[in-house]
Each structure stands twice: as C-alpha cells, then as structure tokens.
Simulated scan of single mutants.
Amino acid sequence: MTSPLERAGLRPRVDKALAVFLATQRARLLAIDEALADVADALDDFVLLGGKRLRPAFAYWGYRGAGGADSEQIVAAVAALELVQASALIHDDLMDRSDTRRGEPSVHRRFAARHAAAGWRGAGDSFGDSAAVLLGDMALVWSDELLHTSGIEPADLARARPVFDEMRTEVTAGQYLDVLTVVTGDTSLERASKVARYKSAKYTVERPLLLGAALAGAPEPLLQAYSGYGLPLGEAFQLRDDVLGVFGDPAQTGKPAGDDLREGKRTYLVAAAHAALGAGERAELETRLGDPALDDAGVQRLRALIRDSGALARTEERITALTTTALTELAAAQVEAEARGVLLELADAATRRAV
C-alpha cells in the first residue's frame, strides 16, 4: 500500500523543490567564500538525506482539501516547512547536547569534528556550537525565502503569511518552555501538555493544515475544522514521540536509547509517572532524570518505573483519545474526498509510527 506521504508523488516532489532551492543557495554561498562549502554540504545533508516530510504533507492536503489545484508552486511553498523543521532540529540537538540525529552526527558534533580534523585553533566544541546556531538560523531565514519565491500568487501568499509567522513564533516559544521545564523541574501534567501543544502539536499538524488552507482561500468553517482535527492529532503525534524517546528502538529512531531521560525531559509520559508514583519511587525518578551519565541499567530502571506506574498505559490511552477526537472532527468537515482519505491515513502514520 502506498504511504500517504507518497500520494500525488508528493515526497519526491518536495525533495526536488528543496534540492533545486538548496543548489541555488549553495551558489550564493560559494560566491561569498569557498569556505562556506562546509555550510552548504551540512545543510544539504541535513535537509535532503532524512525526514518524513510530514509537515509538507499536511499542508499540501490541507490545501487540496480546500479545493486547491495541484501545482509545482504549491509543492515548493509547502516544502518551506522542511527548512523550519531543519532549523528547529539543529537548535534542539544543540540545546539537548545530542550526539546524533537520524543515526548521523548532529550538526554541532559534525562541525566540532571538522575543527578537530583541520587542527584549527581554540575549542572544537565551541566552534561546533556556534556553527549549529548559525546554520539553524540560516535554515529559518531560507524557509521564508523559499515560501515567498515559490511562485504562489501574491494574494494567496498574503493570506498565508500570518499563519507561517504565527507557527514560527509558537514553535520557538514552545522550545523555550521545554527548556524551562528542565531547569525548574516542573513535572505537572498541565505544563507537559502545554509544551507538547506549542513545541510540536500546533507546528506539526494544525499550522501546516491552516497554511495550506490559507493558500487555497478556505472558508472559516473549514479553518475551524482543520484546527479541531489538527490540534489533538498534533498532540497525539508528540506523545508518540515522547514514548519513542524513552521506549523506542535506537536502530529505528536514530537516537541513543534513553536520551530524553538523560536530558531530563518533563514530558506528559514523565509527568504521568511522577503523579502516580509513591514518594520513594518519585524521589528516585527525580534523582535519575536529567543525569547525563545515566547508563543502560539506569535507563532500564527508569523505564520500569514509568511502565509500572501506569504512565505508559495512560499515555497510550491519551494518544487513542486524542486521535479519536481528531478523526471525529475530520469526519464532520467539508473536505474534498481524496484529501479526506489521505488525512485519515496521515493520522494513522503520525500516531502509530516507530520512528
């Protein structure tokens, strides 16, 4: 069965739009200085050699569901979301001190290694960190450029710009709240849900849908229906991500086992465990959570605490409930038939994945 990410040949078309855009940007960088080939190479690898293209898929089918006609211009416009995603992930890996992404060195580790290989002066880690900040910023700048040079009519772009701007503000705010929960130790379910909503839920599903809808000139009732479908589904997507961050197979996720635990992530999964555990086990969870030296035995112990507390089951139940709410909203919406079918399949792909 064809993946919903492949319908309308979307994934290779998004890849092509990104490759064409990045080739143009490479030429611009090299015209400045040949040393910027390292930057172009890193962004090419990060953007083109991985990623599910989930956000462009939601935007594209949100557009088609509102009656928009297929074109290479709309594909280029929704491909801009992949550059926003690249920016978020590059910065996220830096903040989390993650060594890998999709089984390859994270950008800050890549540039630290480049520093070491060249025998340059100063601290390699500091150079890698600086490079990651700048490359993440560049990807965010380029996302704006790809959107407004996509060939979309100016009137359509004018409707879409506020959605695009709001999405980027929300995801940045959500990232800050995520960092804040680690240092404050806020392990409440309320805070965990808010972080999930703004760091991922709105940015992964709701805002891409609304971006596509705005490009198509969708009526207000459809915009409301897309929010009713997109927000709970996006939260379910993030909860699945949180489960995989603790219980996922590194061979599939491309991240070391237990990274979220070492980073001290106060996710819904962790908050549910914190609320359910007795005083002694809660203290153990608090002590071990966020320990960068947590070994495999420590990871297994925290997994057992979370599972035995009932938090894993509770999180799975919430994923199911949120997904059901999303699908109920979609069923009642006035969405073009083919798009409705693909959005149903995308909901399944977003919440039942193993990576």
Rank of each mutant, 00 (worst) to 15 (best):
E6D: 15
G258F: 04
A225D: 06
L157V: 08
A86M: 05
P292I: 03
V84H: 00
Y198Q: 11
V270P: 00
A160T: 10
G248A: 08
A132I: 02
P105D: 03
A347N: 09
L177A: 14
G341N: 11
R109K: 15
G122I: 09
A173M: 14
A8G: 10
F46N: 00
A279H: 10
G51E: 07
D41E: 13
V246C: 12
E317L: 09
P232H: 08
P4K: 11
Q85R: 10
L233R: 09
E336R: 15
F247Y: 13
H115W: 13
R13T: 03
Y176I: 12
D296F: 01
D44P: 03
G119W: 05
A80W: 01
P4R: 10
L223Y: 04
V84C: 14
L10W: 11
L180S: 12
A273F: 02
G9E: 14
M167N: 12
A80T: 03
A27P: 00
D242Y: 03
A139G: 05
V335C: 07
A214F: 01
R353L: 12
D156Y: 00
G217C: 09
W61D: 06
L189M: 09
G174F: 05
G228Q: 06
R301M: 01
V243Q: 10
E34S: 15
V183M: 14
E190W: 07
R240S: 07
G136L: 04
R314I: 01
R7S: 15
D259P: 00
A112T: 10
V243E: 13
P219H: 06
L289V: 06
R318V: 09
A251D: 14
A272P: 06
T181V: 13
E72I: 04
G258A: 04
D38R: 11
G254D: 09
V78G: 01
A321L: 13
L43M: 14
A216T: 10
D41C: 07
Y203E: 11
R101W: 08
G68R: 05
Q85D: 09
L177I: 04
K255D: 08
T325H: 12
L244V: 09
E235Y: 05
A27H: 09
V39H: 06
E82S: 05
R266S: 02
A201K: 08
G119K: 07
R110A: 05
S87H: 05
E338S: 14
A331V: 12
A59C: 03
P105S: 06
R168T: 08
A27K: 12
S71R: 10
A66F: 00
R161T: 11
E338Y: 11
